[in-house]
Amino acid sequence: MKSKSTARAIPLVRVGINIRSLSAKLKSYSPAFMFMSPAVILVMLFYFLPVIVTLWISTTDMSVATFRGYRMIGLANYIRMLTSRWTPRILKNTAFYVIMTLTCFNVGMALVLALLTTHINKKVGMLFRALWLLPRITPSVIYALLWIWATADAPFGIINQLISPLGVEPRNWMMKTPWAVIILANGFVGASFGMIIFTSAIESILPDYLMAAKVDGASTLQTIRYVILPMIKWPILFVLSYQTLSLLASYEYILLLTNGGPGFYTTEVWSLYAFHLALSNYFGNVQFGYGAALAAVLVVIGIITSVIYLKVFRFRELVAEPKIEAL
């Protein structure tokens, strides 16, 4: 049986060893910390701190009139949000907008464009990609004006001028089909981001793989499906996550095109709803507290969505060391 003194000494020795090894580990990581610190500081300042401030404001009744005399009201803003008759409508709009724009354009069309432009003559491909960048580099107000004019009622709108000879009744396309116009307008801008990333990823694939697939008799579609797509899984995950969060938070073009209308919350998405309540209102009624609560919910939705993507795409496997190198 160990003596008491020995029994006491062993944990101390163990602790001494742990402190030493911890200290050694910290020392080995310190260059990494130093390199990461600017980015960490930026993320802290521009993400975590604003989130904390937003959460705090969301527990107040802060508005224009009460800005210098607000009260803490706990979760009242969240309860108001949950019990509001209009919340499901706004949520539904947001889900529709994000899913449709993401699948049809920001990821879907982006992939199609990248695949097409990398399978044709290089210069022609570059030209098409450059054309697809135009909506993104056009100032948003001018871009929105172009859409408003293009969709205007006869005799002004270009769309009417082009398709009415085909027997289609002219109309104000923005008023009659607002979602189609919004998804197209946002999609044309969003597709270019994914297109650039995917093009770069596709062009980084070693030609040996493509040659091998060809030698094995794979058609172009089979090569795309079994070679190219699996090899650009990581960029697809990145674009999907990034664009989802971007679309959740974006409302710029909706504000400029329809301002959430026409009619009653027809195209009002969550971020635009928060903007209307917290920052812009016809009678100057800006409710910072409630707007912050809406924004806080958006942050939570964004985090949950990102976690789901990481799970579905098996993020851990993607960033793990290749098994062959571990052997």
């Binding site: 009139a65 009619g263 009653f264 209102n281 016809y282 009678f283 009624n285 409710q287």
Partner: peptide, 23 residues
């Protein structure tokens, strides 16, 4: 009135919902 803004938002929301046939 300092709370005319929220008052107006509530009344306007109701009116536009009626004119849209929502309620």
């Amino acid at each position: 009135h300092a709370k005319f803004g929220p008052y107006d938002t509530i009344l306007w929301t109701a009116l536009s919902a009626v004119m849209a046939g929502e309620v």
